[in-house]
Write a protein that binds this DNA or RNA. Structure first.
Lengths: 218, 218
DNA sequence: GTATATTGTTAGATTGTTCTAACAAAATTA
DNA sequence: TAATTTTGTTAGAACAATCTAACAATATAC
């Protein structure tokens, strides 16, 4: 059994590994907002538990066991987010902080029940895939909106940033998962885009925004 | 803000104080399954935080502030139990362990939402009163079934023991909150009772059991 | 009312998680 | 490539929560 703290290290290491491939002590330290020496010694501890491959001055890597256990924490996190939105009426911008805590609850039954009540969802409210009961993630093949071109029609399927601010920004513009966007034009200078969707005549999205939106081409 | 650990001490001190009036370090130690010296030093810490009145060799007492904060932890516990039973389909014997963990979640909104979805319940699945938002408990004036006599008809309104074993025992006999019991006879020797309820022709309840059942006389 | 048992307290060690300070290795820049 | 910056490591301290051992006060029993 891993501690609350250990679960957090595993989870962020997993996330970083998926985002960037190689993970350094420094990056993990920044992500967790925990000083490097602390992270360093935790990595040695997790290496003793066969959850992380650790060698001095080498990038960090989760072992298969580590990946599985991290995946299961993320499963609990994302099931919780989905439960909060679907069954309790929270907005997608409100659930992260609560799920950060609920994910550490030790009760297989509790998360089984959530999964069942939700009908075994495959993605969370931000479109991120929910790992299966073995901790394995089914990767989805989305495109960044910023990689699409003028004239294309796409469906908004996920966001790669779940911060309060970003999600409120999207709420404010009526942008939700499932929305169909038509790309009217792309400004070559700053890569900003003009799109239409729903009842919006047209809306300008900066590259900062469009590269955080994942879409399926229709 | 109190730590997870501090919340547990406050909660059990509150419970013991309500059950027995005076609380000793020894009793609290046994209840928490934590050794006396540890409890002793935590009591000093909580005294520094003005949550407990502590004097050497004197019984322990929560301050008004301590009572309020303990009451709020118990509120979160009982709301959670109710939510697990009413909204997630758990049995009343399954919820204690999960609620012990969920009660420490730091999110006013989370428990507000539970309360709202449940329609502001006044009691938990075991019939225990849910403290209000000020941490105050509305005490209910029930009788122990063991204090009732032959010929009386009563409604089962609460249980004073929420252990898995006891609740499964009650489940096995079809005894649920709200059941109407007719007391057929009381055996003077061991105070065991013969009662009828629901579809049961007659059932014998030992004093061990009947003193853990709280009833309203009808 | 003394002896014994129980309860409470103090002192000091242990474990887990964090930190800062100092130093070492690797990467970057000039 | 030498100097500088960034990253990584080691050593040691701090804090919270726990423990055991030893001693002190109170309560109980004879």
């Amino acid at each position: 059994m891993n501690s609350y703290t250990e679960e957090n290290y595993l989870k962020e290491l997993f996330n970083l590994q998926n985002e960037k491939g190689e993970v350094s002590v420094n990056e993990l330290s920044k992500r967790l907002d925990i000083k490097m020496p602390t992270v360093n010694s935790m990595m040695k501890k997790l290496a003793d538990k066969k959850l992380v491959h650790y060698e001095s001055y080498k990038p960090l890597r989760l072992t298969e066991k580590g990946k599985k256990e991290a995946g299961l924490v993320i499963r609990k996190h994302r099931l919780t987010e989905m439960f909060l939105v679907e069954k309790m009426g929270f907005g997608w911008e409100e659930v992260h902080g609560i799920a950060e805590q609920v994910e550490h609850i030790q009760s297989g039954l509790f998360f089984e029940k959530m999964d069942e009540l939700l009908g075994h969802p495959k993605v969370d409210p931000h479109g991120s895939p929910i790992p299966d009961k073995q901790g394995k993630i089914q990767w989805l093949h989305y495109n960044k909106l910023s990689d699409c071109g003028a004239g294309e029609t796409v469906r908004l399927s996920a966001v790669t940033n779940s911060s309060d601010d970003f999600l409120k920004f999207l709420n404010g513009r009526g942008l939700y998962l499932g929305a169909e966007l038509k790309i009217k034009s792309v400004e070559p200078f700053d890569n900003s885009m003009v799109v239409t969707y729903g009842k919006k005549a047209s809306e300008m999205l900066s590259k900062m925004v469009s590269e955080k939106l994942l879409v399926e081409k229709l």
